[in-house]
């Protein structure tokens, strides 16, 4: 008994040390965001020593963070909605319907998942430029309306729904599309929640694609705005950290509320973004 107590204590010591390493940058960001500029250069405390909440207001006045925020929300909502609808429809076809070249198409999609973004990004950029979508919401959203990860995730879930439920609905005279919307979709709420969270985090945190297809503040997302803020206000650490903190809050809030769904998603598919 005493030995297991010691082992447990050792576990906690190592875990707490690791957790400190993980958390310190977040605490430092918070602390710095609340300091005066002079304090930021001499600070060695990770806990707040002064409370200048006005830094947040000043940061938001220094750059159009409101506009960036709005752009990020528009893009995230568009991408999440696209994933929920387009991925779900395709996933249902792969899970339940039989049609020619089904496995071949699925394998091609899986293979595409392994291709680094860099290979596809230049031609994709050229297509978006040809369509005149540079500096528009279209360019930010449309190319990412569907994704293979979501199709795999939902397909796994749909396959686990007993066929008998569908058969019963069919006998009751429900059409194929009716079955999808009235039987499959309501039964799959947890899977949809997981996908929505992943898609939101992906969209909110995405950097390279928005960097390429936006040139003006009217459509720039929060991450791009933040990166350019570093260049302009690099020496005002307090404002910089206030801006960084406000950009980070939505992902952290989503994560704290939906941690279970997120972890379940990784456990079932083993995939990130």
């Amino acid at each position: 008994m005493r030995r297991s107590l010691r082992v447990n204590l050792a576990r906690h010591v190592v875990l707490i040390a690791g957790a400190a390493f993980v958390v310190v940058p977040f605490l430092w960001m918070f602390t710095t965001a609340l300091q005066t500029r002079a304090e930021t250069y001499t600070n060695t405390s990770i806990f707040p020593t002064s409370w200048h909440w006005e830094n947040f207001v000043k940061a938001w006045e220094a750059a159009p963070f409101g506009q960036y925020y709005l752009n990020s929300i528009v893009m995230a909502v568009g991408i999440v909605a696209g994933h929920l609808v387009l991925d779900a429809l395709a996933a249902y076809a792969f899970a339940r319907l039989s049609f020619p070249f089904k496995n071949a198409i699925f394998v091609v999609l899986l293979a595409a998942l392994l291709i680094p973004t860099f290979v596809t990004i230049i031609p994709a950029y050229a297509i978006v430029a040809d369509l005149g979508w540079i500096d528009t919401y279209w360019g930010l959203i449309v190319p990412r309306l569907a994704d293979v990860f979501g199709i795999i995730l939902l397909r796994q879930f749909f396959t686990s729904i007993p066929q008998e439920i569908e058969d019963a609905a069919r006998i009751d005279g429900c059409s194929r599309i009716g079955i999808f919307f009235r039987v499959i979709v309501p039964l799959s709420t947890p899977a949809f929640a997981t996908l929505a969270i992943f898609s939101f985090l992906f969209a909110w945190n995405d950097f390279l694609w928005p960097l390429l297809v936006t040139n003006t503040d009217e459509v720039r997302t929060i991450q791009i705005g933040l990166a350019s803020f570093v260049g302009r206000y690099g020496t005002s650490w307090n404002y910089l950290m206030a801006g960084t903190l406000t950009a980070t809050i939505p992902s952290i809030v989503v994560f704290l509320f939906f941690q279970r769904a997120l972890v379940r998603g990784i456990a079932t598919t083993g995939l990130k973004d």
Partner: peptide, 28 residues
């Protein structure tokens, strides 16, 4: 009926992925 439904269901996702992911691999 199944093939038609499958085609209808797959079309939107395959168009997006085809134009912005699969085709670019070849184009690259």
């Amino acid at each position: 009926e199944q093939v038609l439904t499958a085609g209808l269901f797959l079309l939107p996702a395959l168009v997006v992925l085809g134009v912005f992911v699969i085709y670019p691999i070849v184009a690259a």
